Amino acid sequence: MRFFIMLVFVALLALATGCKEKEPPKVQEKRKYAGSLEVLNSCGEVGSAAKMTSFLRRNGFDVVSYRNDLLQNYDETILVLRNPEWEGAQALAQTLQTKNIMKVASKRANDIDATIYIGKDFKQIIEPEQGETNDKE
């Protein structure tokens, strides 16, 4: 009974003094998408894989490798999901501004969650982030 009376007393005291819980400060942090990405230059433009890798890393994605693809004539960027269960897939597709998404059952899913085949449209994807314009001649 004593415990109950003490509990009621503490509750009334808290209400009377206006005890409010403070909200923790909001911290904005860049979201990290667990997963491993591979970036392949499939457009033929020198340096596109490195530029795309920098763009993706700035947007919170983990690019574990980038290199030239054997074929270098893709017009559009393609996202190949090697692990269709990866939770970052939708965010990656939005970041790449692409609907060219393929799901592939792959033995590499243990190492790579997705492969990005860079198409000739890659500047339209990364330039708004970099603030570049098309006025270059």
Score class of each variant (00 low, 15 high):
S106A: 15
L37A: 12
F61L: 05
R58C: 03
K120L: 04
T98V: 09
L81V: 04
L15G: 14
K30P: 00
G44V: 00
D121C: 07
Y33F: 08
N41M: 07
G44D: 01
K26T: 15
G44T: 04
D113G: 06
F61M: 08
G88M: 00
A91N: 08
L92Y: 08
I5F: 06
L15Q: 11
F3V: 12
M102Q: 15
P25W: 09
A16G: 11
A16D: 04
Q124W: 13
N100Y: 14
S36K: 04
V10Q: 12
N41D: 07
G119Q: 00
M6W: 06
A105T: 06
L7R: 13
A34R: 09
L92H: 03
P128C: 02
K103Y: 11
K99V: 04
E38N: 12
V64G: 10
N83I: 07
R58E: 12
A34S: 14
P25R: 15
G60T: 12
T98C: 09
V104K: 15
G18T: 02
F9K: 05
G88C: 07
E85I: 05
L15Y: 15
L12E: 08
A34K: 15
M52H: 05
L92T: 12
E87K: 13
L15K: 12
D69I: 00
F122H: 06
L96V: 09
L71P: 01
A91I: 06
A93V: 10
N134L: 04
A11V: 12
T95Y: 07
Q94V: 10
R57C: 04
L71D: 03
K30E: 04
A89V: 04
N41A: 01
T133P: 02
G60E: 11
P25D: 14
I5Y: 01
F3W: 03
A109S: 14
C19W: 13
G35L: 00
L56V: 00
T133E: 05
P25L: 08
V63A: 03
A16P: 00
E129V: 04
N68R: 01
E23A: 15
R82P: 01
G88N: 02
A16W: 01
V8L: 08
Q97T: 13
Q124L: 08
V8F: 11
K51I: 00
G35M: 03
A109M: 15
E137H: 11
V27A: 03
P84M: 09
C19A: 15
P24D: 13
R57V: 07
K30N: 09
E132C: 06
W86F: 04
S48D: 10
N134M: 02
N73D: 15
Q94I: 05
K99F: 13
K107N: 15
K30M: 11
E23P: 05
R108W: 09
R108H: 07
T95D: 14
G60Q: 03
F55N: 01
I126R: 01
D69M: 04
I116Y: 02
I126M: 01
A49S: 14
N41F: 07
E137N: 05
Q97R: 14
Q124C: 03
N73K: 09
Y117N: 07
C19S: 09
L70A: 05
K103H: 13
I5P: 02
M6K: 14
T95N: 14
